[in-house]
Write a protein that binds this DNA or RNA. Sequence first.
DNA 1: ACTTTTGCTTAACACTGTTAAATTATTTAA
DNA 2: TTAAATAATTTAACAGTGTTAAGCAAAAGT
Lengths: 199, 199
Amino acid sequence: MASKDRILRLKEETRINILDASLQIVKEEGWPALSMRKIADAIEYTAPIIYEYFSNKEAILLELTRKGFLILARDMKAAKEKHRLPEKQLEAMWLAYWNFAFAEKELYQVMFGLNISCCELSAKLPEADVPYDLVAEVIEEIMAPDKPTEDDVCVKYYTFWSVIHGLISINMVRRRTSEEITHEVLKTAISGIIRSLKA
Amino acid sequence: MASKDRILRLKEETRINILDASLQIVKEEGWPALSMRKIADAIEYTAPIIYEYFSNKEAILLELTRKGFLILARDMKAAKEKHRLPEKQLEAMWLAYWNFAFAEKELYQVMFGLNISCCELSAKLPEADVPYDLVAEVIEEIMAPDKPTEDDVCVKYYTFWSVIHGLISINMVRRRTSEEITHEVLKTAISGIIRSLKA
DNA sequence: ACTTTTGCTTAACACTGTTAAATTATTTAA
DNA sequence: TTAAATAATTTAACAGTGTTAAGCAAAAGT
């Protein structure tokens, strides 16, 4: 009777082993290197037994996603509880979010569907710089009275880009948000940043 | 002699055919469905001849990325030229950027490494809602004097999330930006949005 | 007419996720 | 203790992936 318990505990253990091994492989060799056979190797089994713990590879990814959200929630909660002022709470929570993304880069990637493939893109693809040049020129023009440095312009450009790109990718991976809200965010964000150029 | 020309023209044509076929497959069946054999089928050849035009699959993706940047640059340039005021120019360019992302969704995805996999995530994963609940609560508290609707809070939440997530994903796919600039953007963005809550 | 080059295909390799069958080990029953 | 039943694990296989090498058939050059 007690052996039943022991077996169940062992089963739970290899389940966790599968998840841990997966994450470690990804951390060492990146997402594309994660294969069922490699996971099996790491836990010293053959590939098919993984299917006794997870119905397929996607289920493993989903479980890692869950793990990511649990850590993120814990971190944000902890950050919040360190302050009383709501403004401070907000800032702390988003900083926690930011820190989580880089501390658990691989988890963040599977949580929000970010590929990593393209590094050093503008080296291989000069065209990728055109949008920057186009916008930076105008930003510089608006900020001209303040005599901005190149870094100042860069900061403003990335602020713009982050908002727009962030909104777009959020809308692409999950579109439960209504068109109106999205467009409202877009418009107010753009005009908000434009206003911030002249301050 | 003229036949040399004709042949070169044909070669250029199938090169374009490969790219067009690839994009069409992706538009019809999504990125995961894009395979060398399927491309070959579409252009009525067998897979190996593709390697006479592109050194590998990644080269095809890179070419589609280039195509995307060319269209994006054209659209943004056109938007800019429709206005004289720099503020209007900026707004028009970012709206063009936004429109491009959804008009050429597949190109945008390959340009900026966005996966599409996870749809209806919060249905399969209730944990994914915690960060929203956590933050929304505080936003509501700050905005309380203005008696915000649920949509108002949602708008502000997505504004926050867009900025942070946008910054993160930009920093993950290409980290040529300096730490300082990034952090500068992050901090000013957060405090900027917080200020906007009380207006 | 013979040789060389070109265009293209077939076949193969090393992978991938996944499933079914076979095998081995363990537990249960007599 | 031995035989039957059950569970645990592996091997083999299928269909797919990107990619490369070998082979063939038609066209071009001599």
